[in-house]
Amino acid sequence: MKKLLLSAATLAVMATGALAQDVVRLGTEGAYPPYNYINESNELVGFEIDLGNALCERAGLTCEWVQNDWDSIIPNLVGGNYDAIMAGMNATPARAEVIMFSQPYKLPDPSAYMALAGTEGSVMEEGVIAAQSNTMQAAMVSDTSATLIEFPTADETIAAVRNGTADAVLADRDFLRTYVDESNGELEFLATVPSPGAGVSIGLRQSDSELQATFDAAITAMKEDGSLNALLVEWFGDEIPLFE
């Protein structure tokens, strides 16, 4: 009986529209610069933090951030621990079977292989490739002849390359660029490859169509007045693809 009561309570949470709540909770990882991360002052910062705050202000929503490990970020959205995901998540067909997405707030980010300087490109097919678990890059490596090694966090994939556990890492290029730029030549890109998905978007429960429409309207407004493009340039640099 206790199990049945808990299941009913979970369903009730999922059925309750997020807009009916006093606070809309935004789930993020806090470990994926420059999208979202903890700075030296132990503050949650990043492109998505600035963007999420701006979207909530435009939409007249009171929002709060909830940190969650990447591995369980979708299950905890569905389970009602927060109302939306902003965590560098590409809107892929596989994820759309479980949750729904807003329109993209960042154009599709290609993936890239990164390795220690001087690494042969052949490792992309013959070597050990690190990827964060439950990412599209992990699935991409699985489709090659390389050996996949998965880690819970993106930082651990970088460490695996540096300590020799992996020959290279496959991840979002815009995430890896910071490490390449700040490595003083220690790290370099081996190749850039297309990624699946419609672009980085807000993930929502499939029952929250009203909240989806609210965020879509705010994203559209920021595209139209140029403020979204300004945030993209601020956090990713002048070479980032912009919305027209």
Rank of each mutant, 00 (worst) to 15 (best):
L5W: 13
A8N: 10
A9K: 14
T10E: 13
T10W: 06
T10C: 12
L11I: 11
A12E: 08
A12D: 06
G17M: 08
A20F: 05
V24I: 14
L26M: 15
T28V: 10
G30K: 02
P34A: 12
Y37M: 07
N42H: 12
F47S: 01
L55G: 00
L55I: 04
E57P: 03
E57F: 09
L61Y: 00
W65T: 01
W65M: 08
W65R: 03
V66R: 07
Q67C: 08
Q67L: 13
N68S: 14
S72I: 14
I73C: 01
V78H: 04
V78T: 12
V78I: 15
G80K: 00
D83L: 00
A84P: 01
M86C: 04
M89N: 06
A94M: 11
A94E: 15
Q103N: 10
Y105R: 12
K106G: 00
A112L: 11
Y113T: 04
Y113A: 03
G118W: 05
T119A: 09
E126K: 03
G127P: 04
G127A: 11
G127D: 06
V128A: 08
A130I: 11
Q132W: 08
S133D: 13
T135P: 10
M136W: 04
Q137K: 12
A139Y: 14
M140F: 14
A146C: 11
P152W: 06
T153E: 13
T153A: 03
T157W: 09
I158S: 02
A160Q: 04
R162F: 05
R162H: 08
R162C: 04
T165W: 10
T165S: 14
A168S: 10
D172E: 13
R173P: 04
D174M: 04
F175I: 15
L176V: 03
L176Y: 05
E182V: 08
N184W: 06
E186A: 15
L187A: 07
T192A: 11
P194S: 11
V200P: 00
S201Q: 11
I202K: 03
Q206T: 15
D216G: 05
I219W: 05
D225P: 02
G226H: 09
L228V: 00
L231E: 07
E239F: 06
P241L: 07
P241F: 12
P241Y: 12
E244K: 12
